[in-house]
Amino acid sequence: MGDVAAVVADADVLAADLLVEGPARDALDIVRAHSWMTLLASELLLDDATAVIQAVSDAGLAADWREKITEFATIVDHAAGDHPAIAAAYHGGARHILTFDEQLHGAAAAVTIRDQVETSVKHPAGFVRLFDAESLYTEVVGGDYPGPDRDPRA
């Protein structure tokens, strides 16, 4: 079960993609560059990311980012009070959660998550290191991987 090409980025990774670059940008560039990959999110997850972006930059940038990410991501619903990244992965069937949160990387958390969702929690750098476009393309789409098919800056 689960969508091997679906990724949830927690609010820290979403904000770092915009404002810090580094591994968060590298990881989400992979998603942006492939039309057959999906970024999953929830409104509650985006609320957190928008608040973080506003806190460390400005409200205008946060609002424009929110509009862009809402257009780009597939939005799923979950109950308030759930961890937004885990809940979005659960409800959307994502196989990957990207976060800098070491608590989510912890062994106990990983087991709990796997019991509920067939997903793995990764640091964005780990996701980039392990991403195998050729084999994933063959599994998701079929045939030979043609390379990135979307402009990650569009």
Binding site: D12, A15, A16, V52, V56, R153
Partner: peptide, 30 residues
Amino acid sequence: MSWADLFARAGAYDVTESEVLAALEARRNG
């Protein structure tokens, strides 16, 4: 608005990963 435009605007801020994590921690655990 393109990602390129957003990233260009964001580049005006010198934000670190630690600041992002602290802001999220403050929001979620207040």
